[in-house]
């Protein structure tokens, strides 16, 4: 294992210390239990957004804490859900009296821990709603799985719903908006290489030099199929078609197209993917009205990409364009 770390067990703590020194204008860090809150929390009268998950997906979620996006993020150990005590303390720290929305990615651990935290917070008189993101079309959604995973759509949801909360919408309106986003966004990813969890010390899976995994999760969970590597255009087609067919996206739809890097893939390659993804969308009569390109929901040093499409309307476009000031996303301020 070659990593820029000191000790595996100190990775998350030292990352938080770095964020604390780097962004005192944006966030405050609480230790033991660990969570990140926006510098001006709690914002009185505003619905607060709390998310969280295992570490290793940076900038998600801690990099999205700030004006116009999240009020708090709870980082777990690498690829491990945070714990209810973190979520409860974060929820209390950001509650401005208008209620708190938990944005939860659909993984067994995350859902269980957030459910326990929501119960505890309600017990302390805080109005809490939870929304579960499950946008990964690579997973068959059936009674016999834990359901679809929450992946790239999470980033878009946190931005758009964050803007709605900033605008002063109620907890119910903000939660309904989040559910609407979940119902009209879909994602699919692929990997060229594995990632190495620091405390595991070796790659999570073996992927031969000439093979790729289609439908990969953001923790290196295997996906739909493994096959010989193909040119970028063909890979883009293999990601875009299941997304388009699943919702389905139809001719005339306006979308936000998000081409994400898994952590080890350079931007030069993401633009190659983006170029082809737009071509495929247009061929189906789908109009790309907004875009996001870059590593925003990563899987440590995994090389690969994921594509997310979200069906937009004028409200979603307005909220997407609204100012945001976080370490990971920033415009309009």
């Amino acid at each position: 294992m070659k990593k820029l770390i000191n000790k595996p067990e100190d990775v998350v703590l030292e990352e938080l210390q770095g964020i604390e020194i780097a962004h005192p204008d944006l966030v405050k860090i609480h230790y033991d239990p660990n969570f990140i809150v926006r510098a001006d929390a709690p914002v009185k009268g505003k619905v607060a957004l709390v998310s969280g998950g295992g570490s290793g997906h940076e900038p998600m979620h801690g990099g999205f804490v700030g004006k116009g996006m999240l009020d708090a993020a709870c980082p777990g150990a690498v690829f491990t859900s945070p714990t209810p005590d973190q979520m409860l303390e974060a929820t209390k720290a950001v509650d401005g009296g208008a209620g708190v929305l938990h944005i939860v990615k659909n993984y067994t651990g995350d859902v269980m821990n957030f459910e326990m935290a929501a119960d505890l917070a309600k017990g302390e008189g805080i109005d809490v709603e939870a929304v579960v993101v499950d946008d990964d079309v690579a997973v068959k959604d059936s009674l016999y799985t834990a359901g679809r995973r929450g992946v790239g759509l999470t980033v878009l949801m946190e931005k758009i719903v964050g803007a709605a909360a900033e605008e002063g919408r109620s907890l119910k309106e903000v939660a309904d908006l989040a559910r609407k986003i979940n119902s009209q966004g879909r994602s699919m990813g692929m990997a060229l290489t594995s990632c190495t969890v620091p405390h595991a010390g070796k790659p999570t899976f073996d992927l031969p030099e000439d093979e790729m995994e289609i439908g990969i999760g953001i923790h290196g969970e295997p996906g739909r199929t493994r096959m010989k590597i193909k040119p970028a255009d063909e890979i883009t087609e293999m990601l875009m078609m299941p997304i388009i067919e699943d919702l389905p996206f139809k001719s005339g739809d306006e979308v936000l197209l998000f081409v994400n890097g898994m952590g080890g893939t350079p931007l030069i390659e993401l633009y190659i993917i983006y170029r082809k993804a737009v071509e495929i969308a247009e061929k189906h009569g789908i109009k790309v009205v907004r875009k996001l390109i870059g590593p925003y929901i990563t899987s440590l040093e995994m090389a690969g990409t994921s594509i997310t499409m979200l069906k937009m309307d004028s409200d979603l476009i307005k909220l997407w364009d609204a100012p945001v000031k976080t370490a990971g996303l920033r415009w309009g301020i």
Partner: peptide, 12 residues
Amino acid sequence: LLSTVGGAGGPL
């Protein structure tokens, strides 16, 4: 265990 394990194993 609830406050230290995390994942699904923690609550379980």
